[in-house]
Design a protein around this nucleic acid. Structure first.
Lengths: 133, 133
DNA sequence: CGTTACGTTTACGTGCGCGTCAACTTTGCT
DNA sequence: AGCAAAGTTGACGCGCACGTAAACGTAACG
């Protein structure tokens, strides 16, 4: 059994981020590594959260938005008071993501069109060069 | 026929951005409004580009990345030299977008799971309250 | 016991994407 | 002619998401 916690270096290697980034996320209350003396130890929970953080970033969400949403994935049975509020937040977030998906599909379609045009252009040019030879 | 160009105010209203943003995009060579005296007039081409800029931003691309990609949508027959290079860029961009789409779909799935869990929790709580009454 | 490696805090610096004045033209009413 | 509205060019400011350097702690190894 491998202690189930990672030190900062292992964590950085695992997710391709810098120590500064992890400390920054902790300061912003996105991660909560436990301490062994003054050193940080990142738990399974931190790894799950970091995965979601990096995903959120790729989708263009700010760290503050991400912080609020993280609660969603880590609600335990203690915080019923917040549950309803968090659920509403999640609904909005889901709507955002589905809108983004739709727009992304449209954009992919348009880009493919453009590329088809470009491919045709390139074929033409290749032909001209062959003809000139 | 309505002159086919928009002044800065009309452009701002049409896309819900500020004048500062449009001037900034021009400075960064993302837009190329023509000048009537010293005033800017935004053409159909600028409107098409701005639409793509705002879309790119929603997908989390930087303005510099967007600038490079914009050429893709505005290649005319003059720049054959760049065409091939731009095409390669487009392929990478397309791959990025499709990867993003896949990840987005996964994320949507996971979020829905979480929400189902939350919904169940909420139902439980409602039931308990009813029982207590 | 020194020094090397790894981690820590504190703090200032940086690039991006604009916001926000200030000072100045230009245009369109009245 | 006068004056407000709309637009222009600097220039500085700001929040975010870290980068980077300085100074310090500590555990391990030869």
């Amino acid at each position: 059994m491998t202690t189930d916690t990672l030190n900062i270096r292992q964590m950085c290697d695992a997710f391709d981020v810098t120590p500064r980034t992890l400390r920054f996320y902790e300061a912003k209350e996105l991660l909560f590594p436990i301490r062994e003396g003054q050193r940080r130890l990142f738990t399974k929970r931190d790894r799950a959260r970091l995965k979601l953080i990096l995903r959120g970033k790729r989708f263009g969400f700010s760290l503050e938005e991400i912080r609020q949403l993280l609660d969603l994935y880590h609600m335990d049975d203690g915080q019923e008071a917040q549950l309803s509020k968090t659920y509403v937040l999640a609904e909005r977030h889901l709507a955002d993501m589905e809108a983004q998906k739709a727009e992304l599909e449209e954009a992919i379609g348009e880009l493919k069109e453009q590329m088809a045009w470009g491919a045709e252009k390139l074929a033409q040019l290749a032909k001209e060069k062959t003809a000139a030879a």
